[in-house]
């Protein structure tokens, strides 16, 4: 069970650690604030409570930078 993570230059295959693993959980692990990024699941915008499924492509777009 894995997904493809795209963030800035990073493109990495990641394991889904547990059931009902959400984008919010992923952001927590990456220490990213949901306030500063928007998330896409398989190319479509989604909210952070979305559960990541096997084979998903998850893209995180940073929209707010400090200052």
């Amino acid at each position: 069970m894995s997904f493809l993570l795209k963030y800035k230059q990073l493109e990495e295959k990641c394991e889904i650690p547990n059931e009902n693993y959400t984008i919010r959980d992923l952001l927590d692990e990456m220490e990213l604030s949901p306030q500063t990024v928007v998330s896409k699941q398989n190319g479509e915008l989604v909210i952070e409570d979305t559960v990541i499924e096997d084979g998903d492509e998850i893209q995180l777009v940073q929209i707010i930078y400090g200052g």
Partner: peptide, 13 residues
């Protein structure tokens, strides 16, 4: 989408 390299020096930040 990028950060101004000087942004973190500010009181605004």
């Amino acid at each position: 989408f990028d950060s101004c390299p000087y942004a973190m020096q500010s009181f605004r930040g």
